[in-house]
């Protein structure tokens, strides 16, 4: 007992003097917890269907240019397995979202791993992507490039560089979501102006996958900042309008093989902020990259965040308009602020 007595006394002293000490960013940056994987098994969802039975999902607060109130009444919003037939076959046609091996994931990540030093990053990720067999990276777009020798800007020296020439294929080996794990999704809006339903707009997506998308959030200088990655692929996007009772629908606008791969923000060097300013207006900002070093720019232009959009075919009323590509779009500064009207 005498052996333990000093230890006991010491223990009492320690607990009496211990205080909670705030953890600084550097210490918090070392935190790495286990993530929480989320998988939706046999999932189907349908809201707003059968308006006649009193079901409503209304979005209000919008006015048209004449100041009349506009209500968007969602007469159907659905998520279902493939073959949903534009929302006709939802309940009983389920889909798995996320895989046990590649789930949706919520995690607190050590920022050092992501190039954001000494920060703990809250990360929400969709199922991850793999290195594509033909694209050679985690992009679904197989690109043909060409070397061009030209002036990059009028009056500047001629330089040689590699340019994207065209998209030659779509590499689905990048996706971890398999064919049966890509849901159909759609929404039907009834547009109601001053109490009168004027038209119905519909959009339907088939074979959607959001693999590789992410949201990363952390705090710095007393504000919340983040990086965003939006990566989506859909077999088709269909839009059309009908009259107020949902009949006499107009011609379809169809995007086939739609791919968007967009990253916003680059670690701490280019943070993205979503905030409300002191006057109550909403502001989205993608930080400026002005005044950085040459080596930063070299790396930013080669490996920095960029946006690629590809649509395999655009058809309007069955008439093909061919493919559309936007490649290597880099947002170097963006600030958008709302104004109260």
């Amino acid at each position: 007992m005498t052996k333990w007595l000093p230890l006991l006394v010491l223990g009492c002293c320690i607990s009496a003097q211990a205080d909670l000490v705030p953890v600084d960013d550097a210490a918090l940056g070392e935190v790495q917890g286990a993530g929480l994987g989320v998988v939706f098994e046999n999932f189907a969802f349908e809201a707003g269907e059968s308006v006649s039975a009193g079901n409503r999902l209304d979005i209000s607060g919008i006015t048209n240019s004449s100041g009349q109130p506009v209500v968007l009444g969602v007469s159907q919003f659905y998520i279902a397995g493939s073959g949903s037939n534009q929302g006709a076959n939802v309940i009983g046609n389920p889909v798995n979202l996320g895989r046990l091996a590649y789930p949706f994931n919520l995690e607190l990540v050590n920022g050092d791993v992501l190039g954001i030093s000494d920060k703990a990053i809250f990360e929400f990720t969709a199922p991850s992507r793999l290195i594509g067999q033909s694209s050679g990276n985690d992009s679904m777009l197989v690109l043909a490039t060409e070397n061009r020798t030209e002036r990059r800007f009028p009056g500047l020296p001629v330089a040689t560089g590699s340019r994207v020439d065209r998209v030659t294929g779509i590499d689905t080996s990048v996706l971890t979501s398999r064919e049966g794990e890509r849901p159909d999704m759609g929404v039907r809006f009834d547009v109601n102006v001053s109490g009168t339903t004027t038209q119905s707009l519909q959009s339907h997506i088939t074979g959607l996958a959001v693999d590789g998308s992410y949201v990363r959030l952390w705090g710095d200088n007393n504000e919340m900042i983040g990086n965003l990655g939006i990566k989506a692929v859909a077999d088709s996007l269909t839009f059309f309008a009908c009259n107020e009772d949902g009949n006499n629908c107009g011609d379809n606008v169809v995007f086939t093989d739609f791919i968007i791969e967009s990253e916003l923000g680059s670690g701490e060097d280019q943070p993205v902020t979503f905030e409300v300013d002191a006057s109550g207006n909403f502001t989205v900002e993608v930080g400026s990259i002005a005044g950085k070093s040459n080596s930063f720019y070299q790396n930013y232009y080669n490996n920095g965040p960029r946006t690629d959009v590809y649509i395999g075919d655009v058809t309007v009323a069955g008439q093909s308009f061919g493919s559309t590509t936007i490649s290597n779009l880099q947002i170097q500064y963006l600030k958008a602020t709302s104004r109260d009207l």
């Binding site: 790495q32 917890g33 286990a34 993530g35 929480l36 994987g37 989320v38 998988v39 939706f40 098994e41 046999n42 999932f43 189907a44 969802f45 349908e46 809201a47 707003g48 269907e49 059968s50 039975a53 009193g54 079901n55 409503r56 999902l57 209304d58 979005i59 209000s60 607060g61 919008i62 939802v90 309940i91 009983g92 389920p94 046990l100 789930p103 994931n105 995690e107």
Partner: peptide
Amino acid sequence: MTLNINGTVNQQGNVLLFPTG
């Protein structure tokens, strides 16, 4: 904007949660 929901939402399936990493 304001969202108003009235009536029934139909759904099916399970949400599976498990530790990762």
